[in-house]
Simulated assay, not measured.
Amino acid sequence: MLIAMAGLPAAGKSSIARGVGGTLSAAVVSVDPIEAALRRSIDRSQPTGLAAYLVAEAVADGILALGQTVIVDAVNAVEPARGQWRALAARHRVRLAVIEVVCSSPDLHRKRLEERDRGIEGLDEPTWADVERVRAEYEPWTDRHLVLDSVADLPANIKRALEFIAGLR
């Protein structure tokens, strides 16, 4: 199965992805560390977002080829990114589970963003202005998907995600 996480930066995608991945023994492929590695290897002024998604797709492709479940942890704000995961799932004839994470409290979302330091060398943490820019570009999902609100506690969200995934299998 291919599980695509989606949502604004600092909404809580990675925490849920790690919890689900640990429970399912599924690999979690996160775009942010890939983008950071690309930035460390090239001129930092060059755009790396699309390249990071393509590398994540290549890694996920290899994992799916082994018959294993993979979780892609990325913002997935626009249709081209989403189509990429649909096509990958179709190539491997596996189910695609889409889990969108939101944070319904702007104050909590901003606090989490401003307090986090993931320690990803080569990648600056996004600012609230960056989140607002992504929010303005974020397209509504049309696929069947689960929406989790990260205001709820993490174990409850992981449980809901696992139930949604089990219902798709």
Rank of each mutant, 00 (worst) to 15 (best):
G7I: 03
G21D: 06
V102M: 03
S105D: 14
V134M: 05
V55H: 02
V101Q: 09
R82H: 14
V131N: 00
V94K: 08
A74P: 05
V94P: 06
L2D: 13
G122I: 10
G49S: 12
E163T: 07
M1H: 15
P155G: 09
K13S: 04
E163P: 04
A90N: 08
D43S: 11
S104T: 14
R160Y: 10
G119Y: 07
V55L: 06
A6E: 04
R18F: 12
L38Q: 11
R118K: 04
V31H: 00
S150V: 05
D149Q: 12
R116V: 07
H92I: 01
E121D: 14
R91Y: 13
S30C: 02
V70Q: 01
G122V: 02
S41N: 08
E35Q: 14
I3T: 05
K111S: 09
M5T: 07
S104R: 02
W141F: 11
A27G: 03
D43L: 07
L54H: 14
R116T: 14
A74L: 11
P9R: 00
G167Y: 04
L2T: 07
G167W: 07
P126E: 02
A166S: 04
D43Q: 03
I63C: 13
L8E: 07
W141T: 09
A81W: 04
V59G: 03
A52I: 04
R160D: 08
P47V: 10
T48E: 02
D43K: 13
R110H: 06
R82I: 12
D124Q: 14
E100G: 12
G167M: 10
R95W: 12
L148F: 14
R82E: 13
L66Q: 12
R86A: 04
R116A: 06
V28S: 07
D43F: 09
P106C: 09
V78S: 10
Y53V: 05
H145G: 11
R160H: 08
H92Y: 05
A26V: 12
S14R: 07
D143K: 04
A77H: 07
A36P: 02
G19S: 13
R82T: 13
G122Q: 04
G119F: 12
L123V: 01
K13D: 08
V101S: 06
A58Y: 10
V134D: 02
P9N: 01
V102P: 03
P33K: 11
R91D: 10
K159Q: 05
V28R: 15
I63S: 02
E121V: 13
A36D: 01
I16R: 02
F164G: 03
L108A: 09
D107G: 08
V28E: 01
E139A: 09
K159A: 04
A37P: 11
T23N: 09
E100Y: 05
I165Y: 02
L168A: 07
R160N: 13
A26S: 07
P155Y: 14
D143M: 06
R110Y: 01
H109C: 00
A136D: 15
S30E: 04
P155Q: 15
A37N: 12
L154N: 06
A81S: 06
M1G: 13
G7P: 05
I42W: 10
G83F: 10
V98M: 15
A37Q: 11
G22H: 15
R110C: 09
I3K: 14
D153V: 09
V134R: 00
S41V: 13
E100M: 05
D124F: 01
R39G: 10
L146E: 15
